[in-house]
Design a protein around this nucleic acid. Structure first.
Lengths: 275, 275
DNA sequence: ATGCCTTACGTTATACGTAATTATT
DNA sequence: AATAATTACGTATAACGTAAGGCAT
């Protein structure tokens, strides 16, 4: 049986020109390499070198062999890389969502149920999410509307009411609900990846949005300041203790959403466990 | 470094279901195979089996690995086959010709000059010969007309005058030349692969052609009978001793040809040695 | 109880290095 | 003389088999 080391040795000889120098580069004695190459020729059933007593040069067959050997070794190297990537892929659940809070909830739930798995999540728009689910990019997606497509299962996951969290001394903090526009040109802490709620932001361009990309940083700022920030019925658990704020629901129609959890049909059991 | 035997072992396990039975089929002890597979997993950096103390079943990564391993082993098997074929190709000079006798002459000449090479020859039509030369199928070709194409060298090789070899007692045996049609409906020994001379045959359909595909058989028939047969100035050397025949040249215009030897420009020296 | 995988240990076989040989530049 | 390949021989390492242990069906 041919062995891969022999192919490496062949390539080394082609790169170094002589068996001796190749042997050096392989940390091998010349005789050892000579013998190994002789075995290779015998096993392949062809002569790879023109041998002139004190010189062995690759013949045309040998050069062809070198080219093929490189290809084979490349594919063997790929093998390890590919398998490691495949293993990582198998042990990761990627979820896509159109809203941040519900995504965090889902990620947390998955993390508890499948502690051996890595949970990755990203925000996206409805169509991109569905395509991503169909193509295998996502294992689960959270959409704004029910998805009715062959091969895709869909269930209602939860509802979210967006609020503003105001400091108690804020003039609007006593209200049962407000419209976002009522904050006028005030500053408000906001998220970079805001999903469906971005529509509400776009409709109220007068406010001064202090956009944060890092969740931790935002939480810090909330604690360290008395700035208004966004909140919702889903974020209550995370912020209930630390934050000295009064949550006032937003009456804008863009401030309410129902989320649907979708999976491929092959993941029926996974979906059932989560709803 | 991964070794190919390990990939074979992996495949054997996937085919036999258990390590023990696979070990049997590989003429190896179970512990040895177990260790070898453990090394493979370590070298690849991934787990290939779900191990339940007394059972090792391929996991999904393992199945992927088996598929890849098969591909790699296939390409290694191909390597040997391909190299042997390539070596054979390199040690063979294939010539193409539009006439049989001049082809035999050329083959004989090459055989003497390059005794280490195998000489293969085949008949073909002009255009096919030129294409074959350009595409590398032929190393040398013999054509009816000079070839003037970039990348192709061409020289006059020889001239051939087709004759009929008649028994001395034949009424036409005393003539200086005849036309083939003068033989009326007589029988005549002929070749299956006749190249350019086939045109002459086609023009004289009345004769009874005893077509032979084997050169040896034809020579035997010539010796054992007094049937007329085809001959030429080029075949004289081969038949001079054995044959009790009188050669009468054919006056038909299709019975004379000039042959040109062509090679690719890279084979300039080869061509020069032959002309 | 049997089948199967793993670990431990002593042994063998294969491939290695050193040294000697030959040939070429 | 120097460089490079091959052959011969003793050695060492790495993989093997046997034996023992443990778990599951």
């Amino acid at each position: 049986m041919i062995e891969l080391v022999q192919l490496q040795q062949l390539i080394a000889v082609s790169e170094h020109g002589t068996i001796s120098t190749a042997a050096d580069s392989l940390h091998l004695s010349q005789p050892a390499l000579t013998r190994s190459l002789q075995r290779l020729e015998k096993e392949l059933g062809v002569a790879l070198f023109d041998r002139k007593r004190n010189r062995a040069v690759l013949n045309r067959v040998g050069e062809m062999a070198v080219a093929r050997a490189k290809g084979i070794l490349d594919s063997v190297d790929e093998l390890a890389v590919e398998l490691r990537a495949y293993e990582a892929r198998l042990s990761t659940i990627v979820i896509g969502s159109c809203g941040p809070a519900c995504m965090w909830d889902l990620a947390a739930e998955l993390g508890e149920r499948y502690p051996e798995k890595t949970i990755a999540s990203e925000l996206g728009e409805n169509d991109a999410l569905i395509k991503g689910l169909e193509r295998g990019r996502y294992r689960l997606i959270l959409t704004e509307r029910p998805v009715e497509k062959p091969g895709i299962l869909c269930r209602k996951y939860n509802e979210e009411q967006l609020c503003v969290a105001l400091p108690p001394e804020h003039p609007l903090s006593g209200r049962a609900s407000i419209r976002l526009a009522e904050l006028g040109e005030e500053s408000i802490l906001s998220y970079k990846d805001f999903g469906v709620w971005q529509r509400l932001v776009d409709k109220n361009p007068k406010l001064h949005y202090l956009v944060q990309s890092d969740r931790g940083v935002l939480a810090e700022l909330v604690r360290a300041s008395s700035l208004p920030c966004f909140s919702s019925n889903l974020t209550v658990f995370r912020f209930r203790t630390a934050v000295n704020r009064v949550r006032v629901p937003l009456a804008d129609e863009e401030a309410f959403a129902t989320f649907y959890l979708c999976a491929r049909e092959t993941d029926r059991t996974l979906l059932q466990q989560l709803c």
